[in-house]
Design a protein around this nucleic acid. Structure first.
Length: 291
DNA sequence: CTGCACGCCTGCCCGC
DNA sequence: TGCGGGCAGGCGTGCA
């Protein structure tokens, strides 16, 4: 589920129940996520107040008043569910309507956190590629999870000059280069395909072979697809009470992702979307209008 | 250094 | 209905 727009949507949904609130109770159900829970994980969270809820790459970061930061990564299948007390208030993300006894007792519910919002927040991840850990706030950048990450795609640092230099000389396909979190963070398998379609660039083209004049359009395509997706996720938040498990609305607007065999949506293009495999992962593109 | 195949997990969907 | 294979929005490791 989570590339930058989804992670950002989850962050916004967690904000009302986390930021400025205190953990009143934390329970971990099993410890064999990608990174094991650190020692005394629940104890170090309990009683702590979240002073700031932010994001770096695909990580959600909750800075605590103890000088530590709760680091959350959703992996491929991670979910955060928010159960608002008495359902008196509708709160974003997944506001489920289930019996109290079922809250946090699912087979793949790994962490159950209560805050004084009040609310119960459940972290679920059936594939367990996600993680939750604690890192000293001041040392985040040096932590191995964050060291070497590229710039945020929506920051000023991610500009034409940077991208040109980052791709220069790279002999890997542009698809793989943009998935590489050292080049730029936040993009995943969906949005790379979507951005390359918007830019009219073939995913097979070697990164270093993208000519100077095509760098700016690529940058704009990345910006645009992320902005559109964030807006689509955000706009569906408030009526998320029916929680069908999907996040946001953007999946209905995919131009290429998971559309193999369907007509290209580009105006005037008569092409058909094709699926190929690059570095072991699906890529979708239009061979007719992406060069 | 680079690029790539593979493993990590579970669940779902498809074809036989 | 059961079973095997392939697939899934991420990332780290180890290899050539």
């Amino acid at each position: 589920m989570p590339e930058l727009p989804e992670v950002e949507t989850v962050r916004m949904g967690l904000r009302p129940v986390l930021e400025g609130h205190r953990f009143t109770k934390v329970v971990t159900r099993r410890g064999d996520l990608r990174v094991p829970f650190p020692r005394d994980f629940a104890k170090r969270l309990t009683g702590r107040k979240v002073v700031r809820l932010h994001r770096r790459a695909k990580y959600i970061l909750a800075d605590l008043d103890s000088g530590e930061t709760l680091v959350i990564h959703l992996g491929m299948s991670g979910r955060m569910s928010v159960y608002a007390e008495g359902r008196a208030r509708k709160i974003g993300v997944y506001v489920h309507d289930v019996a109290d006894a079922e809250v946090g007792n699912g087979k793949h519910d790994h962490v159950v956190m209560e805050t004084d919002a009040p609310a119960t927040i459940v972290f679920t991840d059936h594939r367990r590629f996600g993680l939750m850990t604690l890192v000293a706030t001041g040392a985040l950048d040096q932590d191995k999870l964050f060291k070497g990450l590229g710039p945020e795609p929506l920051s000023d640092a991610f500009d034409v000059k940077y991208l040109k230099a980052a791709l220069e000389g790279k002999r890997t396909p542009i698809k793989s280069a943009l998935l590489d979190q050292r080049v730029v963070v936040g993009l995943g398998n969906i949005y790379v395909s979507e951005a390359l379609w918007r830019a009219g660039i073939s995913p097979k083209r070697l990164a270093g072979s993208i000519s100077g004049p095509r760098i700016a359009p690529l940058l704009r395509a990345i910006h645009a697809v992320l902005h559109d997706a964030i807006a689509a996720g955000g706009s569906s938040l408030r009526d998320y009470a029916q929680a069908d498990g999907n996040l946001g609305e953007f999946q209905h607007r995919f131009a290429v992702y998971d559309r193999a065999g369907s007509p290209c949506k580009k105006k005037g293009c008569k092409g058909t979307i094709k699926r190929i495999v690059q570095a072991g992962r699906s890529t979708f593109y239009c061979p007719t209008c992406q060069k």
